[in-house]
Design a protein around this nucleic acid. Sequence first.
DNA 1: CTAATCACAGAAAGCTGACG
DNA 2: CGTCAGCTTTCTGTGATTAG
Length: 247
Amino acid sequence: MRIENSFIPVTGVGERTERSLWEAGVTRWESFAPSAVGAKQAENIESFIAEASERLDDGDARFFRERFPSGSHWRCYENFREETCFLDIETTGLDQRRHDVTVVGTHSPGDTEVFVAGRDLTAERLQRRLDDAKLLVTFNGKRFDVPFLESAFDVDVDVPHVDLMYPCRRLGLTGGLKAIERETGIERDRQDLSGEDAVRLWREYERGDEGALETLVSYNRDDTENLRLLADHVTDLLDSDVFVSPE
DNA sequence: CTAATCACAGAAAGCTGACG
DNA sequence: CGTCAGCTTTCTGTGATTAG
């Protein structure tokens, strides 16, 4: 489903009203007719459509961040799929105050970039990379990756952010990213790495083991790329779950 | 027109779960 | 190991809509 199928960004329209619109055959903005609802709502919907169409034509993803409730940001995925940044970080531990960011992996279709602390990881590069994206996708990133980066580098995320953990939970998929990958048949051609392994590899690298860094970076690269497979899968499932179209 | 109904929004409270 | 956003549920207030 696409942004143009959505009416919940309109103030005064919730999932219930949206669903009844869909069931009445109004499945996209362009098929909306004022007679479908009362006068006041029609006015709200029409002015939303007018503004949102323009923003969408301009590819302005940021506009939709505020308009969509945060649990519905996944609806922006199809529209901005090709300009999505999949993000996964590695750190020396769970506590933002005591631990450090070691590796930041970013993937967008056809372009994976991994930044390493002490080498090419800087606030400027990171911010630039984030600014290039129209949509951010993470797993548990609302609680972990993004706040960690914001406090460590003072970067700012202002695009819609899909944290796949919540959509997964809604679909009955829990147990962490690795477990969900196994459950949904997302392949890894080698054994996966635990969080503690990531910490250990970084320590080994600090003691001079270049190979350990290479391993860490290549796993992180896989993680960000797998995030894309999961996002494709999850948005597909949610789509058939949420979007109803009259036969 | 009024009255009854409906749906959204916001507040409060409790809780789950995942990250390295 | 430390952490708490966001989900869910419940309740209430407020408009909007619709039936009469």
